[in-house]
């Protein structure tokens, strides 16, 4: 087959349909639809139902509470720092892995997956052990009056840790299917490395990159476990949105936790819509 004429998506290759088997096909579809309805759609709908069960006024009141406002700001801050850093790192790592051969490449790939395989709570504890009082870094931090753990820097670090692989994992397959030829072509035409990156590499991976960033951001804003461990749980200061939801839930407020949860649910819906859009876009442009 003529390889150049095969359409391919930089995100996912198009599946080859199996020969028609009506019964199996409908059974599988039914199971998938039912399962997603019960386990995905229903809880999502319930969040909105509960949030509005006590009326709009209470909904707005819950969202306009100062502590909720500060949780929103903190969540944006944490994501605002960790996502760009992880995007930059992911770009560098995926480039290195997809386009070069070097000693320790397998090790880097394995390390990259570590945050996926480590429980977020354990990840949080690692930071407590590293930066907490009596930890490895404690004397140095104390000498410089730096506070990491139970404060915002610790929450940013924990978030960076758990969202570490998203961009790189998304970009590696994209870059591998791209190969190096476009970049080499740019080099033979006299372009330097920087110009090649901005004009050739980045445009050809942009949808994959955006997709990775969207996933990374969703996880960064929604992260609970690791952030729970390193947060000082100070209302209005070190509570992110998910922590705020948990706190409100334990305050016997019937609607407030769900009202705040709708923000996270909307984030999830926006992520899914963006993801679909990016996949469509990248398919169209290939």
């Amino acid at each position: 087959m003529n390889p150049a004429s095969v359409p391919h998506s930089p995100l996912r290759a198009a599946p080859v349909p199996l020969p028609e088997q009506p019964l199996a096909k409908w059974l599988l579809i039914a199971v998938a639809v039912l399962f997603s309805a019960v386990f995905l759609l229903l809880p999502l709908v319930n969040v909105f139902y509960q949030a509005f069960s006590s009326g709009w006024a209470l909904y707005w009141k819950a969202l306009s509470e100062p502590d909720t406002g500060s949780a929103i700001r903190l969540t944006l801050l944490v994501a605002g720092i960790s996502v760009p850093l992880n995007a930059a790192f992911g770009l560098a790592a995926s480039w290195a892995i997809a386009k070069f051969d070097f000693r320790g490449k397998t090790l880097l790939l394995t390390l990259l997956d570590l945050p996926f395989s480590i429980s977020p709570v354990v990840a949080g504890l690692l930071f407590v052990l590293l930066f907490g009082a009596g930890g490895l870094m404690a004397p140095w931090l104390e000498a410089h009056h730096l506070k990491i753990i139970f404060a915002i820097p610790g929450m940013v670090l924990a978030t960076i840790f758990v969202t570490f692989p998203y961009v790189a994992r998304e970009l590696i397959p994209v870059m591998q299917t791209q190969g190096r030829e476009q970049e080499e072509a740019a080099l033979t035409l006299g372009a330097g490395g920087w110009r090649t990156f901005w004009h050739v590499t980045l445009p050809s991976i942009k949808w994959g990159l955006f997709y990775g960033i969207v996933l990374c951001n969703a996880r960064a804003m929604g992260e609970f476990g690791a952030v729970f461990v390193v947060s000082g749980h100070i209302a209005g200061q070190t509570d992110t949105l998910p922590l705020r939801v948990e706190k409100l839930y334990y305050e016997f407020d019937p609607a407030a936790p769900f009202a705040v949860a709708t923000l996270l649910a909307l984030l999830a819906v926006a992520t899914v819509v963006l993801k679909a859009f990016l996949e469509w876009k990248s398919r169209r442009e290939t």
Binding site: V128, G132, A133, G135, A138, F150, H233
Partner: peptide
Amino acid sequence: RDVIAGSE
């Protein structure tokens, strides 16, 4: 435990 670990 958190206070011991540095929650000031």
